[in-house]
Design a protein around this nucleic acid. Structure first.
Lengths: 227, 227
DNA sequence: GTTAAATCGGTAATTTTATATTGATAAAAC
DNA sequence: GTTTTATCAATATAAAATTACCGATTTAAC
């Protein structure tokens, strides 16, 4: 937010590049470097130098001519900008295999996300722990979310149940939803929804591969593999 | 590919909307509908009608004035365009929790992806099956990929090992990589790489949430939850 | 010191993407 | 049969994102 109280809207594309810079810069810092230039970053990540500079500018990061940027400052500023410097608590709903996988991502905490509990309807899962996190019954979801002022909900339930879970999360006061179910959720405009739709992602890959194979066909499999 | 032999480049944004249309249209078909109009689709998905029509046009789909589109035709054309009508075989590398989650996605086959085997270095995993798929030793990866003419590789190993795995996949003749490891892979230009970087995704969510909270702050948690 | 080179900052041009407008078409209503 | 209406198609406009350019600045080389 700037002095006028307006919040700059940052493009999704920029938002997805910033963590790349952050990661690279952490590597540079670990290697003992103190400074970095826009062209440096652009070179490694194969991006346009101007774009890198504009992205950093968006995050409120300034450099100095001929010098570049002070590595430590940029890293801190990026974390600040991305909201990684204070941890936000989240509930994960759906303790299936994808849910379990996410519960195991330890580095999320470094990115400001702490999953404090999981929820599921399956009695065989409720009461157990997955990667150290309690699995609680779904009935308690919205109540607990409200009492604990949980701001982020992660949905890893089957598509058919996702909308219902989303409604409960919203009822519990959640402000952002990370949705791994392959459905478009209906939520109030005030709730941020981020869809991680692997089928859509796969579609993009498939289509590009199909195009590439048309240009340059692949031979047929010689040794079929029985599964 | 058109008659001139050129391949139309489709924007990533369009490519990610097409599966949404496909899913919706399958629902419509299941409900017994025979036709659909652009505005219909746009209404449900909250998109611009012109954009929907343009997307369909990109996929080579034509409609008729006042009629709209024939549902069955659009579904087939979308699947054709997305490369979903012929199944492509894939290897998955990294039988950790994310790998296991992906091995459990049964619907991938409907999207033209069949994961035929998994690979891992961990002796406790090798030789076992996960969701019915064999886990094989990593040493066999590039050799088997080549012999079986595997075109897609899915990387779900830790970041540190991802580049090595990518190299082996490329050596085995793989043409597309679906990369879940949080690193940018170095591959020949002919190989399609699709990054599914959850940390970048999370960053986008965090930043938007941070912005929303600045506009409309959340109360502090009243009941801390010990884990 | 002076010069040369590298890099940021701001602005402009380009390209891409999204949206609006208008006309043609065909079905349905009357 | 005529009119009305909904829709696709094509074109035009607007918005956004990317890339290019140029001047200012500061370090390093000589």
């Amino acid at each position: 937010m700037n002095q006028t109280g307006t919040v700059k809207v940052v493009s999704e594309a920029t938002l997805r590049r910033l963590p790349l810079y952050h990661r690279l810069l952490k590597d540079f810092a670990a290697a003992g470097r103190m400074r970095v230039s826009g062209p440096d970053i652009a070179g490694v990540l194969e991006l346009d130098p101007t774009q890198v500079r504009k992205d950093l500018e968006t995050a409120g990061i300034a450099g100095r001519p001929r010098i570049g940027y002070v590595l430590a400052d940029v890293i801190v500023a990026l974390e600040e900008f991305l909201g990684w410097r204070k941890v936000t608590e989240a509930f994960l709903v759906g303790a299936g295999s994808m849910g379990a996988a996410l519960l195991g991502y330890r580095k999320f905490e470094e990115c400001g996300l702490r999953i404090v509990a999981a929820f599921d309807t399956d009695p065989s899962k409720v009461g157990r722990r997955i990667h150290g996190k309690h699995v609680l019954p779904l009935e308690k979801l919205s109540n607990l979310a409200e009492r604990m002022h949980i701001l982020i909900g992660i949905i890893t339930v089957p598509a058919a149940e996702a909308q219902d879970v989303a409604d409960q999360l919203v009822a519990g006061g959640v402000r952002a939803i990370w949705n791994f179910a392959p459905v478009r959720l209906r939520t109030p405009a005030s709730v941020i929804v981020h869809n991680e739709d692997l089928y859509c992602s796969l579609a993009a890959l498939s289509q590009k591969l199909a195009g590439a194979l048309k240009r340059d066909p692949a031979p047929l499999p010689a040794y079929p593999f029985s599964n």
